[in-house]
Nucleic acid binder design. Structure first.
Lengths: 345, 345
DNA sequence: GTGAAAGCGCTAACAG
DNA sequence: CTGTTAGCGCTTTCAC
């Protein structure tokens, strides 16, 4: 069946040894840069290996040493730019550490995530980076039991599990965003986020919103709070908000995917940002910086998170057993989408 | 060093065999669903395996069979939504075929791509999906020599290499886009694309542009053609185009990443789309459908491409040696960004 | 500096 | 139906 013309076969250590008229051991040593071979022999072997286009069989190598240079990352939803950014950070740092990255997409589904973890472990990944899609923690305890190296990213888990984490201060960062609006004189601030995806970060952001209101002694108006089940309903909610007699002067979008829908709905109604409505987004859509008037965003250090996660993981793999909780701060990037209501009549 | 509490150890076939008081072979057979074991023994073994949370060592399994269920995909630039879409398609189909996906990002750099290929092969991937970043073909010939299963996606290569390909009709699809503008009465159509990334698809799209002009007996105005080296220069070019005495009535953006810059620049100058300038985009940015007035795009069947690529690859892995060139068509999705100049004075 | 031998976990070939 | 044996490609003793 297969094996068409099948010219060049993949060459093994053993074959090189035969050609070089030496032992497999010698070849192994020469190629892996260890000593136990004369410089002359080494050069000779390396020459031959190169000529024959030798490529080590990592499967065999790893099996032998029972350890790979593979790290697996399971992202919640690969279509989110957030996870892409994360992936970039992870990949970059992994390359620096000469690790390779296995990627799986959980599609925000627990079973898929679980399966991916099992597969990664079946391939003897030395470590896992996980952004848990659910609140379940039993399987994490199980991983802990098995002594798997894990770094949790983005969505904090029970401290007692004892995994290292790389997180963002969602509550504080969210609060800063709302504070910014309050400082600019806004009092009626619509809150828009996801109802379907009730992850910790999302909950924390809401907490930050409430906290900011409270700090300014403002009463929460539930009419202004929209936990949206399906992104497609965003336009409807936005229209409703805009139609309120006492309509909000600002929209705080706490989950990025909703942003384009809110913004476009506002624009469609021929309202201008920030004149008729101010906007702050948690997260940074690709268009945020470019689309007039430029959108004020909570910029998260996502790539850094990815890099840090890999660093923590590698240090664990190398035997460092203490777990750390790394918390990074986002930066409120002020662009043109917030109107200052203070200077005005 | 490592091995902290180290409670549950990963259990092997051998250990299960001992517990079940039988042979390794029996366990292997029972667990892999082959016959050669009594139903009773099988149940017994499965029970034990489950109890001990047995997880097969895929490294060992694959090494033995000299074949993995891994396929590797090397994308040109993971930040492009195009590749993310592709990845989704690939992943979905791979899961259906119970294959696993290794992802590498070439960052549009040949050496990185080459290295990734080598790594994938070192891990004995059964097949590779490649979106070549360069015009070099020597290394592809080498892969061919080695009888590696490869499917090329997006960027066609020399037919003689004999790899299967999944492509888009860039020239024709591009021509349709320009035709659409011409049919709407546009005669001065600015062409915006990348100078840095001179891949076949990009070249073909330009060819389609020229072809359309020619078919309408229009002379090419080089002032209207912008091969932009760095995305950051897009705004400048757009302003220049808008300042032309005989300024273009339409912008054809042949490479998606430039779109947001062109569009935002137009908007910043308080020009309205499509009133003052029409826009057609090759590719579909996330905001295209939502941002008023809705942007007319060449929608590519990217996910389908990914799926097809995996199908082709798997069929190759299963021994089908004939290569195919699959060419998919995009669809011009008309939204609100093209003004019809015909109906007017 | 060198090589032989053992074995990582698994499966396939063979014998009973 | 069952078990023994051998070996995938590599590294790591251990002996010389």
């Amino acid at each position: 069946m297969k094996q068409k013309a099948g010219k060049k076969k993949r060459v093994t250590l053993k074959e090189i040894a035969e050609i070089a008229n030496t032992s497999v051991t010698a070849v192994s040593r020469a190629l892996s840069g260890k000593d136990g071979v004369s410089e002359e022999t080494r050069q000779h072997i390396i020459r031959i290996a190169k000529d024959h286009n030798y490529r080590p069989n990592l499967l065999a190598k790893n099996m032998r040493s029972l350890r790979t240079n593979l790290i697996g990352i399971i992202v919640g939803d690969i279509t989110r730019t957030y996870f892409i950014e994360l992936l970039r950070g992870v990949e970059r740092e992994a390359r620096r550490q000469s690790m390779h990255v296995l990627v799986a997409n959980a599609d925000e589904d627990f079973d898929t995530e679980y399966e991916a973890i099992q597969t990664f472990l079946a391939y003897s990944c030395s470590g896992l980076i996980i952004c848990p899609v659910s609140h379940r923690e039993d399987y994490l305890y199980a991983l802990r039991e098995e002594d798997v190296n894990v770094v949790i990213v983005d969505r904090p888990v029970e401290e007692s599990i004892g995994f290292s984490e790389v997180l963002i201060e969602n509550r504080k960062d969210s609060r800063s965003a709302v504070d910014h609006l309050l400082q600019n004189g806004h009092r009626r601030i619509a809150y828009i986020s996801s109802a379907a995806l009730q992850t910790k970060p999302i909950q924390e952001r809401y907490a930050g919103y409430l906290e900011a209101l409270e700090a300014h002694s403002l009463r929460l108006d539930n009419n202004l709070v929209r936990h949206i089940v399906n992104v497609d309903e965003t336009a409807r909610h936005t229209v409703e908000l805009l139609s309120l007699t006492d309509r909000p002067t600002a929209f705080y979008i706490a989950d990025e995917p909703f942003a384009i829908h809110v913004v476009s709905t506002i624009m469609q109604r021929d309202l201008a940002i920030p004149r008729d409505a101010s906007v702050v987004i948690f997260g940074t859509p690709t268009w945020a910086a470019h689309l007039p008037p430029g959108f004020t965003c909570v910029d998260r250090p996502i790539q850094t998170m990815g890099e840090q996660a890999v660093k923590l993981l590698v240090s664990q793999i190398h035997g460092n057993s203490e777990h750390q909780r790394l918390t990074l701060r986002s930066q409120l990037r002020s662009r043109g989408s917030v109107r200052n209501l203070n200077d005005e009549g």
